[in-house]
């Protein structure tokens, strides 16, 4: 691999010089033979042979791909390596591929899928027939209603807009706030979404079940509880509770929930590992 790249690198300058003559220099590694449009007279009136049938000198498509330069060359080399890697892995592995018989796609799987789909569509129809929506009075910019709310799934975002008490007053700026409260609220939304987005880059490994990763399960549970508490805080004018108390609870409850989930799962993991180890040592008793 490294040798190949070295040779291509060495060839590159000459190629670049040759490629100035015509576009055909790009495609081939043997410029002197193939760059016909540079040496001969090019017919531009449509009379000349536009397409030349391949002879032995003309590189085949695969050769062309192998000889090409730059990114396509790199791509080709990488795919070759990847194919070799796959093959090596297949040869090394002790896994035997057998014919595993499941249900046929048609009709079994399809009938099952259709049944599930129609059941689910039926549920939506039932819901919409029994609980039809309401429409309020028409829009009036003159009268602000007592209750302004987005749909329920945006409550969390609405709550994050009300994080003004957390917006730090910097003594460096003489007790001024760095940004307006509402900017801070919008920023909080971005922070939450960004935090969710980077999770796969922080949590790696083969663990799948919550029991196997109590920390991340705890974080997730705390996050879910926070979504509920911040949603509740967003409608704090409807909840008969001191707003400051509710604000504190919105941040304390998730931490509490995360700690509880973490400790429960941690203790469950002890038992889980105990079972696994017992089974393992029963199969292979220590000498």
């Amino acid at each position: 691999m490294t040798e190949d790249t070295d040779t291509t690198d060495a060839e590159e300058p000459t190629e670049d010089v040759a490629a100035d003559g015509g576009p055909a220099g790009e495609a081939s590694g043997t410029p002197s033979e193939l760059r016909s449009d540079g040496g001969e007279e090019t017919a531009t009136d449509g009379a000349g042979p536009g397409i030349v049938p391949p002879d032995d000198e003309t590189p085949a498509w695969s050769e062309r791909k192998q000889r090409s330069q730059g990114l396509s060359r790199l791509t080709y080399e990488y795919f070759e390596r990847a194919r070799r890697e796959d093959q090596d892995l297949r040869q090394e592995s002790s896994y035997v591929e057998r014919d595993v018989l499941g249900f046929p796609a048609w009709p079994h799987e399809m009938i099952r899928n259709l049944a599930i789909t129609s059941f689910f569509v039926g549920m939506i129809i039932l819901l919409s027939a029994t609980l039809p929506p309401h429409i309020g009075p028409p829009a009036n910019s003159g009268s602000t209603p007592a209750i302004i709310l987005p749909d329920w799934y945006l409550y969390w975002s609405f709550g994050l807009l009300k994080l003004a008490p957390l917006n730090p007053e910097l003594s460096l700026l003489g007790g001024q706030k760095l940004m307006a409260d509402r900017t801070f609220g919008v920023l909080a939304n971005l922070v939450v979404v960004g935090a969710v987005a980077i999770v796969p880059f922080l949590n790696k490994g083969a663990a799948r079940r919550p029991v196997e990763q109590p920390f991340w399960a705890g974080v997730g549970f705390g996050g879910v509880v926070f979504a509920f508490t911040i949603s509740a805080y967003s409608v704090n004018n409807l909840i008969p509770m001191e707003p400051t108390l509710q604000f504190d609870l919105a941040f304390l409850l998730p931490v509490l929930a995360a700690c509880i989930a973490y400790s429960v799962l941690k203790s469950m993991r002890e038992g889980y590992m105990f079972d696994l180890n017992r089974r393992y040592y029963r199969l292979r008793p220590p000498k």
């Binding site: 009075p137 602000t144 209603p145 987005p150």
Partner: peptide
Amino acid sequence: PWDQLAFWAGQIGVEM
């Protein structure tokens, strides 16, 4: 629907 809820939710969106 452009009812009261819609209008004021839109107001929040503009402010955001």
